[in-house]
Computed example of a mutant assay.
Amino acid sequence: MGGFGTIFGIFGIIAIIILLIVFFTFVPIGLWITAFFSGVKIRISTLIGMRLRRVRPGRIVNPMIKATKAGLDLQIENLEGHYLAGGNVNTLVDALIAAQRAEIPLEFERAAAIDLAGRNVLEAVQVSVNPKVIETPNISAVAQDGIEVVVKAKVTVRANIDRLVGGAGEETIIARVGEGIVTTVGSSMSYKGVLENPDSISKVVLNKGLDSGTAYEILSIDIADVDVARNIGARLQTDQAEADKRIAEAKASERRAMAMAREQEMRAEVEAMRARVVEAESEVPLALANALKSGNLGVLDYYKMQNIQSDTKMRESLSKGKSLNSGKDNGNQS
């Protein structure tokens, strides 16, 4: 009996130890003690409820201790609700502490909304205290004289807490500043004016109110660099002249083709006319024979016609001979 009692006693001690381990694991007594001595009033049942809701108590209690020591009046239920909504409780508390130190009015609801919107609320508070410099990429613009100018600007912005939810980000600021630079340079008569007064670009762009609807407030726009690039106007004129030349060459080729086609057509017409003349001449003897047979043409008339043709041929030959002789005489005289 004594042996069985000893065995039961050992099992009892082991069971008690296991129960204590499970209890202290499930119930964060150490965290409760830390919170108690830090001035955070929280019940054991609240910590157990966090365990049941699958919330890590340390993620809530430690930021609560930090907020209490900083003098913030926060409720443990609000922090737990923000954690369950997917927010970052530690960053939220740090942002509230930083805003309090910088005397920036930031309520818990506003900070929670900013954090849940996907923005870094702590960074927003820091940028609101220390302005941030956004550097634009190289922006190409063309003045009215056709010279391309490459401009790089630095934009100093400060976060606007009230517009962080629903406000546009840095990409919108860069795009608007680039558009303003292109418009300002494009309205300049010459690129020399841009090089001489680069601050005129920043003044014009700054007066356009480019930060409306964004999460930032533009404090200043500084032109960091201005370089002269290509002569776009001359290049466009050259390209236009080349295009006009090609158009003229195409039209000239079209006219040549039309002229050649017309020439071929005229040659075909001439050959057709010659063929008709030869055909008509071949029918003359037959017509004369028919006229003689029918009595429409007399023999004397026929001989007169032959004489006339012989005289005509003789005169043509004499005229050709005279023209050849006159040409030879002129050559001898020379």
Rank of each mutant, 00 (worst) to 15 (best):
V165K: 06
G166M: 08
G167H: 12
G167V: 06
A168C: 04
G169Y: 08
G169N: 12
E170I: 14
E170R: 07
E170D: 14
E170H: 04
E170A: 15
E171D: 14
I173M: 09
A175P: 05
R176I: 10
R176W: 03
R176V: 06
V177P: 03
V177L: 04
V177I: 14
G178W: 03
E179N: 09
E179Y: 03
I181E: 01
V182I: 15
V182Y: 02
V182S: 08
V182T: 13
T183L: 14
T184L: 00
T184M: 03
V185D: 00
S187H: 03
S187E: 11
S188G: 04
S188C: 08
M189N: 08
S190G: 04
S190L: 05
Y191T: 02
K192R: 13
K192E: 12
K192P: 03
G193L: 02
G193E: 04
G193K: 01
G193V: 01
G193D: 06
V194Y: 00
V194E: 02
L195A: 09
L195F: 11
L195Q: 06
P198C: 07
D199P: 00
D199A: 14
S200G: 04
S200W: 00
S200V: 00
I201N: 00
I201C: 01
S202I: 10
S202H: 09
K203G: 07
V204Y: 00
V205W: 02
V205R: 01
N207M: 09
K208V: 04
G209K: 10
L210E: 06
D211P: 10
D211H: 10
S212N: 12
S212G: 10
S212H: 13
G213E: 04
T214G: 08
T214P: 09
A215F: 05
A215M: 13
A215H: 07
Y216L: 07
Y216H: 14
Y216F: 15
E217N: 14
I218L: 11
I218H: 09
L219M: 15
S220K: 14
S220Y: 09
I221H: 09
I221E: 07
D222Y: 11
A224V: 15
A224Y: 08
A224L: 12
D225K: 11
V226F: 02
V226Y: 03
D227I: 13
D227T: 13
V228R: 09
A229Q: 10
A229P: 12
R230P: 05
N231R: 06
I232H: 05
I232R: 06
